[in-house]
Amino acid sequence: MQQKYSNLKMLAVLAGICVISAGLLGYAHISTAERIRENREARIRDAVGKVLAGIDSYERINSEPVIFKGMTQGEIAGYAVLYEGMGFQGTIQLLIGLDPDIHMMKGMAVLDSVETPGLGDRIKGPDFGKQFEQMGIPGEGEIKVDTITGATISSLAVEKIINRAIGDAKRIL
């Protein structure tokens, strides 16, 4: 009898703790979800503004991959493609700015990456990013990047992601 009682108590305490914990987390999730979504949207908004400099507005025109169309005074100023691929340690998510004819890149921004600090994460830096501003896209659609010393794998990963994104953009647009 004693044994049975203590089993019940074990179950009751564990179940009780789990219920309280679930309730608390549910509440926390609901109250932070909105802000987390806003943060993410603000990041994408900043990045679109960076890779398509000078646009007045933009809208999402495709998912899989996500493509934004940027407008300046009623004219299409370019497209921004959200694309991700494998980096050195994990996924790299890039936003790639293209001109309306996809003859030229207008810019590149790193949205998410877990590359090595001080080495691979220099793909986020201005020195690496600058080369993509006004970079011509050759006929076959394969760009070449200037790699960062000591971060060849991360640099080539960026090159691969961009080339895939350009390929998809050409197919879709």
């Binding site: 703790i17 789990c18 914990s21 987390l25 926390a28 999730h29 932070t32 987390i36 943060n39």
Partner: peptide, 15 residues
């Protein structure tokens, strides 16, 4: 369970 609850709270608040 108690620890995991607080960790998830911290994660959501930081995010």
């Amino acid at each position: 369970v108690i620890i995991a609850t607080f960790v998830t709270l911290v994660d959501l608040i930081l995010k």
